[in-house]
Computed example of a mutant assay.
Amino acid sequence: MDLHLTNRKALVAASSSGLGKAIAAQLVAEGADVMLVSRNESKLAEAREELAKLGGGRVEYTVADVKDKGDVEKLLQRTGELFGRIDILVCNSGGPPAGKFEELTDEDWEHAFHLNLLSYVRMIRGALPYMKELGGHIVNMTSTSIKQPIPGLVLSNTFRTGVAGLTKTLSQELAPYGILINTVAPGRIETDRIVQLDSKKAEQQGVPLEQIQERSQAEIPLGRYGTPEEFAKAVVFLLSGANTYLTGTTLVVDGGLVQAL
């Protein structure tokens, strides 16, 4: 299948590592030019060098904190200046801290709001002037918590669900411009974030990390954690020219974990 990604211009947030980097790598391999983004310049430089070896599209990077309004504005401006346009946007951010409701402060809530919801609003708003003339594809990264709340992750359960509502609303408002926008909800994909959450559980329960991982994987019908690469392939289809009619949907990539309809 031709994904029609050659020479497409993409901005992928939180892309110096993890799922964002995997998505960026898949886009580059398919011929897209990609702007990498994170707060860590050394990791961005390493990621750019690695992705450039794939032999596909052009790779650039910008150091930015997506929680900062000024940084987001500069990011969109620089991407437009270097690439001339933005065809693809991946809104992504690190996960908020784990914790139960009574353990969290106002500062925790405000941080998660800026990181996991308002940053998406600002990135989409900034990309629209580039997309409205020629159309485009947007994917908002969330979590399976939007379908089935995850115990101990009340911040994610709250703000990721807000992103799903934003996506559904914008799918209607942006459709006249040929802009397709979808939500992708990763399950237990083998990243540093999953190791962090599993380690916290192991510490709380006083058991080895391996025991928590074995239990966790046993809950997944496919019997294992997903890989960033196979997750990225699903996302890149939604971002590609092969997707011409899917918008306002939520794609759950979780190996069958979530039981909600």
Rank of each mutant, 00 (worst) to 15 (best):
L54I: 10
Q205C: 13
G255A: 07
A29I: 08
G18K: 00
L3K: 00
G248N: 02
V195F: 00
A185S: 15
T167S: 12
Q211S: 15
H137Q: 12
L3S: 06
W109A: 10
G126E: 06
G31V: 07
W109Y: 10
R125T: 10
N243F: 00
A10K: 04
E229Y: 01
R188L: 15
I181G: 01
Q211I: 06
N7V: 04
V139N: 02
S143A: 01
V121P: 11
V154N: 06
N243M: 05
L118R: 11
G56Q: 10
P228C: 01
L246Q: 11
P221N: 11
A52C: 11
T158E: 09
G126Q: 03
T62P: 08
V59F: 09
L128R: 04
A10E: 09
L36R: 05
E190K: 06
M35H: 10
A232W: 00
A164W: 09
L54C: 08
F101N: 13
V235N: 07
L3C: 08
T144S: 13
D108Y: 02
L5H: 01
K200P: 01
P228M: 00
V90M: 01
V34A: 01
E133R: 02
A112L: 05
V184Q: 05
V139A: 12
G95P: 06
S42V: 12
S38C: 04
L115S: 06
A45T: 15
A164G: 14
G255S: 07
V235S: 03
N157L: 03
Q172S: 14
V37W: 01
G248V: 07
N40V: 02
L166H: 10
I146L: 11
A22R: 04
L261K: 14
N157K: 10
Y61Q: 12
E133D: 08
L117S: 03
R160H: 13
S15C: 05
G241F: 04
I194A: 12
L222F: 13
Q213P: 09
E81Y: 11
S93R: 03
K132F: 01
R48V: 14
K201V: 15
A175S: 14
P186V: 10
K53H: 11
E230K: 00
K200D: 13
S240Y: 00
P186Y: 03
T105C: 13
Q26I: 12
T249L: 14
H111M: 12
Y225E: 08
Q205K: 15
S171G: 07
I179G: 06
G135A: 07
S199G: 05
F159S: 10
L82H: 13
K100C: 14
G152S: 08
F113H: 06
A234E: 11
S145E: 12
P151A: 13
A234P: 06
I88E: 03
E133Y: 06
E41C: 00
K200R: 14
A218N: 12
L197N: 07
R224H: 09
K147L: 15
G99F: 08
